[in-house]
Design a protein around this nucleic acid. Sequence first.
DNA 1: GGTAGAAATTGGAATGTTCCAAATGCAGAT
DNA 2: ATCTGCATTTGGAACATTCCAATTTCTACC
Lengths: 338, 338
Amino acid sequence: MGKRPTILDVAHHAGVSKSTVSLVLQRSPLVKAQTAELVRKSMADLGYVYNRAAAQLRSGGVGLIGMVINDLRNPFFTEFAISVQMALSARGYATIVSNSDEDADLQAQVTGSMIEHGVSGLIMSPAYGDATGALFDRIARAGLPCLQMLRQVDPRTDLFPFASFDYSAGGRAATRALLASGARNIAFVGGVEGREITQERLSGYLSETRSAGRDPFVLYGRASRAFGRDAAKVLAREHPEIDAAICFNDLVALGVHSGCAEIGRRVGADFQLIGFDDIEESAQVYPQLSSVSCDIESFGSYTAYLMAEWLEKGNKPAPEYRAPVRLVTRSSSREPDR
Amino acid sequence: MGKRPTILDVAHHAGVSKSTVSLVLQRSPLVKAQTAELVRKSMADLGYVYNRAAAQLRSGGVGLIGMVINDLRNPFFTEFAISVQMALSARGYATIVSNSDEDADLQAQVTGSMIEHGVSGLIMSPAYGDATGALFDRIARAGLPCLQMLRQVDPRTDLFPFASFDYSAGGRAATRALLASGARNIAFVGGVEGREITQERLSGYLSETRSAGRDPFVLYGRASRAFGRDAAKVLAREHPEIDAAICFNDLVALGVHSGCAEIGRRVGADFQLIGFDDIEESAQVYPQLSSVSCDIESFGSYTAYLMAEWLEKGNKPAPEYRAPVRLVTRSSSREPDR
DNA sequence: GGTAGAAATTGGAATGTTCCAAATGCAGAT
DNA sequence: ATCTGCATTTGGAACATTCCAATTTCTACC
């Protein structure tokens, strides 16, 4: 297993200088098309592979973007990560993705490793925790462009621009829709108390419920299917007057959905349900789940666009951006008018 | 924003030579503990960040592993990727993962980019397609250790060891269980005809059905929820005698599950159902879905172990390995004895 | 056949680390 | 004092590329 051929070997084989080969590598218009072709042929012959490390050493950043995501097992974030990665790849950037598993220490570790690998920008959907302050300081010190997406944990949005969905508007729309289709008592289910996102999704619900003269009822909990299932049973047992729920996200809603199936409550007819995120599965369960749709795919491309603009033209994004959301009404919430 | 401090700046600040700093970086036992402490302090003071590119240039591979996955949107593969990544990270490797989206060209592209980035090993759950042959040739030429996990697309398992689950045994177990609990006519639903995995999962089903003197019935299709839903309706309409199904994977099974709910067929009672993969959701739907469980998390750690052994000790894994599977019986298939 | 100007090509220098062989410091033995 | 052996430290070379300024080659025009 001989060592890999270098640019020099290629140059020799093609009868040109290393500089010319380098130029070809960068698709420079300076080299004659004919020469370029010759060089490319030599590369193929020798099985040359580009050595990014050397290039990076000499000329700094090379379009590598790091992405750190709090929970890649959650399909919503998976989808986000994938669409960012694909959009960046289409723009010629390579991406490295890591799961921080909601663990601030792990997050600091993987982010550090990315910085060492010479990423030229970071896209984070950060985990909450103590270690985050220090981490963002470190990023700031390294002078790296860094986007906080979907979650804002560092308040310095001038340094670390924040973008997310307009969850508050989503909460309002969902609540209004339920009220309009005849719900009397609506609960809000799931989400960790005190967290930014929970607060936002909740706020729309609270304002609309109150202005309709109803009492809000909130059941906080982990954003998981398992919690949703339990919640469905708890609600049926202890608060039978509640006839509709807005869930923190689709995972919870799907949990409630199967919890209802389990205890024989008919979703849509007996109990109306709206989730958040509109993950793929929501359209596939029966009865189909209504959800506040966050077009995560275009949000992902938009993220890639923001990062590319920042890196290429130095256009730092606005400190805060809210992408619009859209209520998708399916059978879990559409009720016959009475 | 001045440029980053280098090992030389640190050396100067600490009053030692660059070589010493380098040794500290590698945690060499050669440097006096006291000196090491001093150097580390200087690093912190200057905000030094390690430049992996330079290190890599000088000394070759630095524990970067590339992982290319055919479909990261599928929770089964997501889980796999995450557990490999975490296990590798615990062993001190960094990982870059990419989604090939079942597209052979994209796969070739991202894999190429990983090779350029200087990965010292590749873990693939490859996509099928024309471009794959050339791709594997390229990997072989680069002399990179490469594992084919979960799917075998290149026949040279001596070069690219293959590991997966013992799907055939899983198919047998599922079929036997259904027969034992009273199913008369069992269908096999989903999976693309002619593909290795489909073949394996199917083979167990076929052998058991035949040896029980029943006629097999296979409905090929995409491995998606949507197909499962349609299949449920088709089966009910055109083959009412079929009273059980083994699905290619849980996604399909969940689709059948919700399709049955839609047409009022009671899963578990009217129609027995077993999936493949045992993804988290299967235990969360109602009625709970039986599934052939593939312990993907330990399979992931095992993958990491294989790669580490190969890289560190030169122990190439066996050409083929089959991890055992386990049938998890839940309410979608347990039927009251009659 | 000469020449200006453009087009294409080229030889160092530089990048930040690791590796190697060699140098230094220090303790105890001669 | 000198030497021996060990622990620690060190300066230079090497790694594969890009950048820059300089050089060569080409083209068109007189």
